[in-house]
Nucleic acid binder design. Sequence first.
DNA 1: CCAAAAGTGTTGACTGTACACCCATGT
DNA 2: ACATGGGTGTACAGTCAACACTTTTGG
Lengths: 224, 224
Amino acid sequence: MSAFKLHVPPAVTADTVIFTITDGKLKVLLVKRSRPPFVNSWALPGGFVRETETTEKTALRVLKDKAGVSSVYLEQLYSFDEPGRDPRGRVLTVAYFALVDFAKIKFVEEKNHEPSAFFGTRSLPKLAFDHAKIISYALQRLRYKVEYTNVIANLLPRQFTLSQLQEAYEVILGHKLDKRNFRKKFLTLGLVKPANAKVSGARHRPAQLFSFSKGGMVELKRFF
Amino acid sequence: MSAFKLHVPPAVTADTVIFTITDGKLKVLLVKRSRPPFVNSWALPGGFVRETETTEKTALRVLKDKAGVSSVYLEQLYSFDEPGRDPRGRVLTVAYFALVDFAKIKFVEEKNHEPSAFFGTRSLPKLAFDHAKIISYALQRLRYKVEYTNVIANLLPRQFTLSQLQEAYEVILGHKLDKRNFRKKFLTLGLVKPANAKVSGARHRPAQLFSFSKGGMVELKRFF
DNA sequence: CCAAAAGTGTTGACTGTACACCCATGT
DNA sequence: ACATGGGTGTACAGTCAACACTTTTGG
């Protein structure tokens, strides 16, 4: 159907690195491949672009099918087309990364689906294709981006405690942050505002809930 | 020849935003299209990926053909595949951006080549396809990147005066910088080191030449 | 001797970092 | 009453931003 007969184009796929936070860890969704190549290896969820799809649509479809979520933060990461990255032939993949609040995920465990699971980014299994490289690229991007934007909002519920927020940063950046300085930063920058609700029920002082003050993406001179 | 018969893949091209600095301006190389679509419009240099090429190879080939340069800074920018971006059908383009020292450019003005010229980024003509969007994306990336890396080295000759370096920053960032603070920054960070040569011949005090101290890419907490 | 760009330090404001104790609750 | 995580302020160091005059050369 293509109007370009000169060259046989590469096949095009979209793969998505779906990040979420649970168990105090940053995790990535992987699916176990049920067919060759790389049968039984874990791989990023992804698929071929259909004829009426953009790569972004493909990524969204996969996100819906594999993680059961539909309104999510999704950002294009990078395109990979090294020869040999797919043993079947030339495949260009446009990689995306998504940030999802773990509470919003509905695992779609239908019979015809491949098994999928979240893996901590520090304990990944062997991965199919060049997916290890893609994940490491995504991690790097995420670490950069949380330092000068409010993207991290997408990994948290609408309301959260400052300790939860701090833990999210620590898990992503891979190091501890100072509690007093952390709170000062967010409050004086006006990035978050207190909700009128607290979390009680734990056997300690109840925590104030906050939400991000701006809805969209906010960019700042980096704050760590 | 593709092993994937399920879906007709989009055509794949690579377009390159080639930046250089001359006349105290940041400029971009454009070519005048000699065939439809968009005949006689200016467009980014680019082309379809050939069967044995990666998109990066395509970008390098175009760089060689259109600007006559071969060892250049080249970085993948973003992939664009909005439907309708090419009237001929589905075309995914992987956009790259390149930084070239103007002195290294050899215009390749062969008879069968389309005319090409550098345009100041503030005075671009009407552009074919979504190339205006691609350029603005590239500009944004470049502005970010010069603030926390030494990429700017690729736009300058090996040796340069601090005034030239400062001017390069000013042209890219779009605002003046303080001379004393600028010099202090670079010298105390150790990013540049003095060469043992000066520029004389102008009717003013001769300027010390410098070169970047590290060869590869250096990343820092941003410096402006 | 004049025009032109090169070169050079100090100060005050602000930002980042280190650090330790009391508070409110549930059990 | 005690264990648990929530919540708070200060002081010092480092970085950033503003600012003006002298130097060296060519013409």
